[in-house]
């Protein structure tokens, strides 16, 4: 019951208070939209890490494929934007199928093989000039429509859209995690033999997580393309789309559903509002420090870390 209340209050704040209070400040809204965009990718990345047990250094690939798929469908084939965004997710999911041979590699090699795929997709986007416009990119990609009287192309509208996407993904993630699939996936990390012998097709489940994670990343990539109305390969496949979500997920706690999203909000907003002001070039250094620091101080991220500290304090207080 208490849990329900918290969720309700959070929803009212997110959908009501934020646009009411900040809606008029375009710059702040843009930052929040960008932070949620990264949060969406971070959530997808963490789903793959937490449930699939796979660390990926190549989510930029899925982000870029989703962005291009959607943009091309809208520009060249006049698909409605929202439908094309779903297709962007499907495009990224299809691309992830190409990466599946990498699933039989051990952890670090999988991570790096996916990184290689990211580069390959970027180069292909540059080379497929007739489809993607090549290195010059695509200009004036149509923005979001008006839906149920809400102009999604406005800052507030775009905010509501990405918020909804992220919430839907978080809900889906939670659903998977609580299902027997989620249980089996959780058990697989440390007890792969025990799970296989009772009939769990572990490689298939991992593959499924990869597809779902890629789909989510693709949808978010597509959202971003229609939000900024512009794409070029260097931007769509930029390593930032990998680095920032990883930093956010690890900072917020990649073993939790909300950690990556909250992590993205904190990390990105602090970076843009503080560090970018302090050091205009090279402020991404902060993400590097963050990644290294989190690995050394608490390999499961900040949320569990905070939980541990507060537990410790409670037990001290009790003693």
């Amino acid at each position: 019951m208490k849990h329900r209340m918290v969720v309700l209050v959070a929803l009212v704040l997110a959908y009501g208070a934020v646009p009411l209070l900040l809606g008029s400040m375009d710059y702040v809204m843009s930052l929040i939209i960008a932070a949620l965009t990264i949060g969406g990718v971070a959530l997808a990345w963490a789903l793959l890490g937490n449930l699939g047990g796979l660390v990926s250094f190549g989510h930029a690939a899925f982000f870029g494929v989703g962005a291009y798929t959607s943009a091309i469908l809208v520009v060249d084939h006049h698909w409605p934007v929202l439908l094309a965004m779903v297709a962007g997710g499907v495009g990224a999911a299809v691309a992830s199928v190409a990466t599946m041979p990498a699933l039989r590699l051990r952890g670090p090699y999988f991570a790096l093989a996916i990184l290689a795929y990211g580069h390959i997709f970027r180069i292909l986007a540059v080379e497929a000039t007739s489809l993607t416009g090549g290195a010059a990119g695509m200009l004036s990609i149509p923005g979001f429509p008006t839906l149920l009287g809400i102009n999604l192309a406005s800052k507030t509208g775009a905010y509501a859209l990405i918020l909804t996407i992220v919430l839907l993904f978080a809900w889906l993630y939670g659903l998977i995690r609580r299902s027997t699939y989620g249980l089996a996936l959780r058990a697989m990390h440390d007890s792969e033999l025990a799970t296989r012998v009772v009939g769990v097709p572990s490689t298939h489940l991992k593959a499924a997580m990869l597809v779902i994670s890629a789909f989510m990343t693709g949808v978010v990539g597509a959202f971003n393309a229609h939000q900024i109305n512009f794409l070029d390969p260097e931007y769509a496949f930029a390593s930032s789309w990998t680095v920032l979500p990883i930093a956010a997920a690890i900072f917020g706690g990649y073993r939790t559903v909300w950690g990556p999203v909250l992590g993205a909000l904190v990390v990105f907003l602090v970076d843009q509002l503080v560090f970018k002001e302090l050091m205009p070039s090279g402020h991404q250094l902060v993400f590097g420090v963050l990644l290294g620091g989190m690995v050394i101080l608490g390999p499961h991220g900040l949320l569990p870390l905070l939980g541990r500290w507060s537990k410790k304090e409670a037990s001290h207080a009790g003693a």
Binding site: T180, L183, A184, A187, S191, T195, V198, V200
Partner: peptide
């Protein structure tokens, strides 16, 4: 199966 309860162990075995 680590990280799971006794019943969850059986649930996974049964489901799959």
């Amino acid at each position: 199966m680590r990280e799971l309860t006794v019943r969850e162990n059986l649930r996974v075995a049964q489901r799959f």
